[in-house]
């Protein structure tokens, strides 16, 4: 089992820091804290071993490990963690278990644990999925967890999302209108039909699963990608923004690396954890752009 290796590693990682700390503040509680941390860790391990022995089913979690700053982890590899299976366990639950019981250096993003924050999009058994929304019971075992493809890996399961966020910002993802209501306290009402039209597109949680799955976004770095185009759709189709804004938004998405790059592979639509019909939205924007251009003829 490779957990022994990582256990040793995580300790060597913390020791120099702790030693420096102790040197700068002699007689501090650092040493004690370190001692208690160590005790706690071995207690967690013992607990894990007990739980593993007691549990009916154990699932093996194969996790991608990489850290350019740590010797021995600079070459990507997979670590296997045994996790006692419990009913309703998600991939995120299993990862948290592995981190808390076996290797505290195992790194991944998570926050709300209920598919809202969009932090834990991972490549699970070959598909982009949200860790917190994917049941272990629904997967083939052993479960293999990797960072999102087509993004730079920072450490373990954490990828650099900057490029994705840049693309999202490029479509100006905020409500803007020239069409202000007359009265001071008047609301900007949206018709029920219009709300229904954009409903699905508003569900995006910026997790990046779609863009990671997209073959074109992988090859063409300038391509806006499904998430950003869906965001543009959300505002371009919002009638409250008015004609001039809609025109502006269509101009943004119909640039060379905009909607035309989409090859309708449906990969994004397949992986979207919020079930947004991304391909449908991109196609509608293409048609709107063509229709708008044809009008001038």
């Amino acid at each position: 089992m490779s957990t022994d290796v990582t256990e040793r590693e995580s300790e060597t990682e913390t020791e120099p820091e702790a030693a420096a700390d102790a040197a700068s503040r002699p007689g501090s509680s650092t040493q004690q804290r370190q001692e208690s941390d160590k005790r706690e860790r071995s207690a967690m391990r013992e607990r894990a071993e007990r739980e593993l022995a007691e549990s009916d089913r154990t699932v093996e979690l194969e996790v991608y490990r990489y850290d350019p700053d740590v010797e021995g982890k600079a070459d990507p590899r997979f670590d296997t963690f045994p996790v006692p299976f419990t009913k309703g366990m998600t991939v995120l639950d299993a990862l948290i278990y592995a981190r808390d019981h076996f290797d505290s250096s195992l790194t991944f993003r998570h926050s709300c644990r209920q598919a809202i924050c969009g932090s834990d999009a991972l490549f699970i058994n070959g598909h982009q999925r949200l860790g917190c929304k994917t049941q272990m019971a629904d997967l083939e075992w052993p479960v293999r967890v990797e960072p999102l493809p087509h993004a730079e890996v920072r450490k373990d399961l954490v990828v650099d999302m900057e490029h994705f966020y840049d693309q999202m910002e490029a479509v100006e993802p905020y409500f803007r209108t020239d069409d202000l209501p007359s009265g001071d306290l008047a609301e900007q009402r949206q018709s029920r039909q219009n709300r229904e039209k954009i409903k699905m597109s508003t569900r995006c949680i910026w997790c990046g699963a779609c863009t990671s799955s997209c073959n074109i976004a992988a090859g063409d770095e300038e391509y806006l990608g499904p998430a950003a185009i869906n965001k543009a759709y959300r505002f371009a189709m919002d009638e409250r923004e008015g004609e001039a804004m809609r025109d502006h938004r269509l101009n943004v998405v119909e640039k060379e690396h905009g909607v035309w790059r989409c090859q309708t592979q449906f990969s994004c639509t397949e992986v979207c954890p919020k079930d947004i019909p991304l391909t449908e939205h991109i196609q509608e924007l293409k048609r709107e752009a063509v229709k708008r251009n044809l009008k001038f003829w």
Binding site: E254, K255, W260, K286, V290, N293, L294, F296, W297
Partner: peptide, 17 residues
């Protein structure tokens, strides 16, 4: 493809054709 002088933008034209 930097020119967007034409109202009939070339990218869209090729897609449509």
């Amino acid at each position: 493809m930097a020119e967007y002088y034409s109202s009939f933008e070339p990218q869209g034209t090729r897609w449509f054709l």
